[in-house]
Design a protein around this nucleic acid. Structure first.
Lengths: 218, 218
DNA sequence: AGGCTAGTGACAGCCACTGACAGTTGACAA
DNA sequence: TTGTCAACTGTCAGTGGCTGTCACTAGCCT
């Protein structure tokens, strides 16, 4: 029909583009509804209606309510995983993880922004932290991600994750700290990128002290 | 009717005893069905039918399927939390946590056994680890437990959990390691108490090495 | 133009969970 | 005892997430 004009995606059949649009419309509508009226108080029918498709179609694009709510998280996680893989192999494991987060945040932001407004993603994250059902699903996925990262770390160091406990332990420590900072950030007032960056460094720097024998020797 | 014979609970009204029996019957039936035919493939109606009560009654005793499945975990967690509180205050935080787990396992076993056979509890744990929906719920509860423990640790050390990051970090590190060992234990072949004890010490001992700069200096 | 197939809507049905109401059964005092 | 009250339970109806099925439409390809 049209020329091969540079749309959002240059090469893609009409069919493909329509699917893409429907998916994004559903995603945006869902997040918008979730963050304004709450996750539980939003029905799948509402979301479908907002995009003017049948409920059945919604379930053809997303496995369920949870999946939509966590979708942008998935994008961010994938980007983070890639950032870890891109770290130079001579860096120590925890160093690599630390830099992957700190330096990756901007590219993560971009990756998210290409799907939904970053601001919506941020609101979604706060929603997850404050909605038990979503937090549960999020934590489970994080556990899977940690296992993957542990394998990446093990490979970097030429280790077998089932023989040497250190990769999993290191990742677990790192993941634990990330959970804390994520929660505090979502509860706090400053929801900016620099804010989370500061929190992250501050808490990561406390791992050593926290493991020290005597805390009172300040 | 009978004399005041030493039943399971000496002092409790008939009504109370009946409730207790129904609750335990539901719990046992649920776990038995879950572990034999799977969590998802077991309906609430089946559980209720097995105990010969209405579905409605099931929901008066438990908030949902998840809650039954995680019930014995809750018992174990409560016991662990108590064990932490009982540690002498001069012990270093991580030391206290470590001993609470290692030395507490037997009393945890007893606490569980007073509700359902320990073997059923073990099977339930494996079920949780292998059922996404249950694992998600379990992880969320674990996160809550960690926050509580962090407060206990902070109090031991006379700290404010919102000022000093170390309590939360220490607990997160510990919790992360416990997750790993729990998973490996459930996946492994030896499901005995000594087995998990060994795993725990082995992995806890790897926290230091995992944080070291250079891993290859073995 | 016409056949092929991916994508969709409409419908029926399962299951977890909830509110409302009525019936039953221990608890407790007269 | 007996009567009253409150706790507990069953039944029924309804909501919402999710799935299977099937007929239909619309983009694709020759």
């Amino acid at each position: 029909m049209e020329t091969t004009g540079a749309q959002t995606s240059p090469r893609a059949s009409l069919r493909e583009r329509k699917k893409q649009r429907t998916r994004e419309a559903l995603l945006r509508a869902a997040l918008e509804l979730f963050t304004t009226q709450g996750y539980e108080r939003t029905t799948v029918d509402e979301i479908a209606e907002a995009v003017d498709v049948s409920q059945r179609t919604f379930f053809r694009y997303f496995a369920g309510k949870e999946e939509v709510a966590l979708f942008t998280q998935g994008v961010a996680e994938a980007r983070f995983l890639a950032a870890v893989r891109e770290r130079p192999p001579q860096e120590a494991p925890l160093e690599a993880l630390r830099r992957a987060v700190l330096e990756g945040w901007d590219t993560i932001g971009e990756a998210v922004e290409s799907v939904v407004p970053l601001e919506l993603h941020m609101r979604a994250y706060q929603l997850i932290e404050s909605t038990p059902a979503l937090l549960a699903a999020y934590l489970r996925r994080s556990a899977e991600l940690e296992e993957e990262i542990a394998r990446v770390i093990a490979e970097r160091e030429g280790l077998d994750v089932d023989v040497d406990p250190r990769p999993r332990v290191a990742v677990a420590v790192f993941g634990g700290v990330m959970r804390i900072t994520g929660r505090l950030w979502s509860e706090g007032a400053d929801h900016s990128i620099p804010a989370i960056r500061e929190l992250t460094t501050a808490y990561l720097d406390q791992v050593g002290p926290a493991l020290a024998e005597k805390w009172r020797t300040e």
